[in-house]
Structure formats: structure tokens, C-alpha cells
């Protein structure tokens, strides 16, 4: 079934998990119903797939859009912070699609459509969607169990390649349905939306 633009505001995310998470946040935390979350594909596909989005027959009805991107640790240019690299990468994709570009994370450039860029977790630190979610539960007493688990692994010289995701999975393993990903967990109400961690949303 084809993707269809149905709302005047678009939130462009990478994949299905991010889509589920932001849809839950918009609905359950922010009470916003006029934003459509669009999983446009992994970061390497953003440039190409934005050209398909802007050609959509209903794109003219879009008043504003925002692109959400992780600040990955895997970027090759170590001299530039990951968040800055992610921001520049998104700007390049927007320019390629002849869309306006904001000057910084969290800002909107005038349109039409207005365009914003948001680098997760906060525009500065390294991280991803799971980082944001983890922050929301890290002050809970039982989260000490997760910390203890990874300290134990470290003592045995076991280092997960992506610590943010690994810690997220470890935490979610303690929930009633233990096999959910971050986005599915959001839909199930496992992340406390009233946490300060989500204030930037």
C-alpha cells in the first residue's frame, strides 16, 4: 500500500521503531494530532527518499516538516562532534531536495514548507532514540539492576557494540512483555512521558 500524506505537518524519522515511538509520544505525551510521522528509511537513504517525498502529489499541502536524526557514534570524522555531523548531513539532504534549512538543531527555517531539524538525544550529545528513552528511566530505583548487569559484563570484558541499544533491551527485558523494541515499548506505555528527559520533545 502506498504512503499517503494525510496531515499538514510531517515528522521525518528513520525507521519503523522511531515511527512507533514518536507516534506514541505525540499522542500520549503531547496530545498532538496534526503531525504525521514518516519513516523514510535509514540515514543513508534520506537524501534519495526526500526527493520522492517532495514529488508526492499532496506535498503542497504540507505546511511544515521536521527531520529527526540520531547523533551516532559511528561517524568517521572524529574531529567534528557526532551531533554536528548529523546536523550537517541532514542539511545536505534538505538542500538536495530544494528544501529550506534551519541554522541549528531545534530551529525552523521559513518555507513553505517550514523545515526543522532535531538531532537526538539533545542536539549536542552522542546518542539515539534509545538514549533518550533510557534517560527517562535512569533515575528509577530498579534501573540500578541494569547498571549492575553491565558492570558485571564489563568485569568479564564483554562490551556490547552499541551500549545504548543493549541497555535499552536489558531494561525492556524487565517489563511485562519483555521482547519489545523501543518504539513498541513506547506504544505499550513503558516510557514515562512525564520524565524531564522528554521535555525537549
Amino acid at each position: 500500500m502506498s504512503f499517503k500524506i494525510q496531515k499538514p505537518k510531517l515528522l521525518i524519522v528513520e525507521g519503523r521503531d522511531e515511527q512507533l515511538c514518536f507516534e506514541a509520544a505525540l499522542r500520549d505525551h503531547l496530545g498532538l494530532t496534526d503531525i504525521q510521522v514518516v519513516p523514510i528509511g535509514g540515514k543513508t537513504l534520506l537524501t534519495r527518499n526526500l526527493t520522492g517525498l517532495i514529488a508526492d502529489p499532496d506535498f503542497a499541502t504540507v505546511g511544515s516538516l521536521a527531520v529527526v536524526r540520531d547523533a551516532d557514534e559511528t561517524t568517521p570524522d572524529a574531529a567534528t562532534p557526532a551531533a554536528a555531523q548529523s546536523f550537517q548531513s541532514v542539511r545536505g539532504s534538505l538542500r538536495h531536495a530544494n528544501l529550506s534549512c534551519p541554522g541549528a538543531h531545534g530551529q525552523f527555517a521559513e518555507g513553505p514548507p517550514r523545515v526543522g531539524v532535531f538531532i537526538v538525544p539533545n542536539g549536542t550529545d552522542v546518542g539515539m532514540l534509545e538514549t533518550l528513552c533510557l534517560h527517562s528511566v535512569s533515575t528509577l530505583p530498579e534501573f540500578a539492576c541494569v547498571d549492575a548487569y553491565f558492570q558485571c559484563l564489563q568485569a568479564h570484558q564483554i562490551a556490547p557494540r552499541n551500549l545504548h541499544k543493549a541497555r535499552t533491551h536489558a531494561w525492556l527485558a524487565s517489563r511485562p512483555e519483555p521482547d519489545r523494541r523501543a518504539g513498541e515499548a513506547a506504544q505499550a506505555g513503558y516510557w514515562p512521558w512525564d520524565s524531564q528527559a522528554f521535555d525537549n520533545l
Binding site: 502506498s2 504512503f3 528509511g41 534519495r48 526527493t51 520522492g52 514529488a55 502529489p57
Partner: peptide, 21 residues
């Protein structure tokens, strides 16, 4: 008349975006 570039056509297959209007 909206023309699709080669990469936009690839995107249409990937996502898949609506094309027909």
C-alpha cells in the same frame, strides 16, 4: 507536470510514496 528524477523513482519503490495524485 511533475517529473521524477532517477533517485525519486527509486524512492517511490522503496518507501513507497504515492505517485498518481
Amino acid at each position: 507536470m511533475v517529473g521524477y528524477s532517477e533517485e525519486a523513482m527509486e524512492a517511490v519503490l522503496e518507501v513507497p510514496f504515492e505517485v498518481r495524485g
